[in-house]
């Protein structure tokens, strides 16, 4: 149970908050915000406040749902590529390659404008209980983003699963653990631990992929900014606010992942 000296000490190096460069950065930030507030136009904000909050919520729930489902899907994808027989590992590999090799925008459009517009041709689809769902845009957005996240993270998890020393798994088996228990107690935790920094990065990338759903009429945060621009012809202010919001969200995500990483004790196997 010894802490690895290098990483731990770098992470927990005491940081003085009021070092000179920080004060300068804070002053610059305050100046920029004040300048933006004074010289730019913000009179449109009250009109779009409710819409923006709804858009922000849409962005966030799409991010969370697609990341969770994508990750759940990525586990079998990664595992199949590491231990699966050919008939499992080859399709998994093919899936990851296709997803990672094609633009996400294309995937979203193929699902929404392609698959999605096939459904209405069949009367039984229109009459089925699923029709109110498949005529909406968000299911396609969620599906496309989930598959995309699964494709990227599946590849990450493949590496992470392969990186866990075989001796660990064999030792666990020797203790009499079932295959499932070995996976749950030894293999998965260690794989996640190695993959966590990459997962953090992929989640941030996923956040910045969500604006693509605005192209298929899902009203997320980006769609609201577009709308403000079309309505009022105020160009830069909504975009700046949008950038700031995404930066704050990214900061939040990174902070959460850092907390997660800090919770996992760094052990020397």
């Amino acid at each position: 149970m010894t802490h690895s000296p290098t990483t731990a000490s770098e992470n927990h190096r005491p940081i003085g908050w009021f070092e000179p460069h920080r004060i300068i950065l804070i002053v610059i930030a305050i100046t920029l915000v004040t300048a933006a507030a004074v010289f730019m136009r913000w009179d449109w904000l009250p009109d779009y406040y409710t819409l923006a909050v709804a858009g922000l919520w849409t962005s966030i729930w799409i991010l969370i749902v697609t990341c969770v489902f994508g990750f759940v899907l990525a586990l079998p994808l990664g595992l199949a590529q590491v231990t699966g027989p050919n008939w499992l590992s080859l399709p998994a590999k093919a899936f990851c390659t296709v997803i990672r090799g094609t633009p996400l925008l294309l995937q979203i459009w193929l699902l929404y404008y392609g698959v999605g517009s096939l459904f209405p041709q069949y009367p039984w689809v229109r009459e089925s209980a699923f029709w109110p769902l498949v005529r909406q845009a968000w299911p396609y957005a969620v599906l496309a983003l989930t598959l995309s996240f699964a494709g990227y993270v599946g590849e990450v998890m493949r590496g992470a699963f392969a990186g866990v020393p075989r001796g660990q798994l064999e030792a666990a088996r020797a203790f009499g653990m079932s295959r499932w228990k070995v996976f749950r107690r030894v293999w998965l935790p260690q794989a996640i631990q190695t993959a966590l920094p990459t997962l953090s990065g992929d989640t941030v990338l996923q956040l910045k992929s969500t604006p693509l759903v605005a192209t298929i009429t899902v009203v997320d945060l980006y769609a609201v900014a577009l709308r403000v621009r079309q309505d009022t012809f105020v160009i830069y202010e909504p975009l700046l606010l949008l950038a700031l919001t995404y930066m704050v969200l990214t900061g939040l995500l990174v902070w959460i992942f850092n907390r997660l990483e800090a919770r996992i004790p760094v052990r020397v196997g």
Partner: peptide, 18 residues
Amino acid sequence: LKTYQTQDEAQQDLVAGR
């Protein structure tokens, strides 16, 4: 009330029954 950036997209969705 569903809004579209262009009339084209709205027309497509009308044809598709969305």
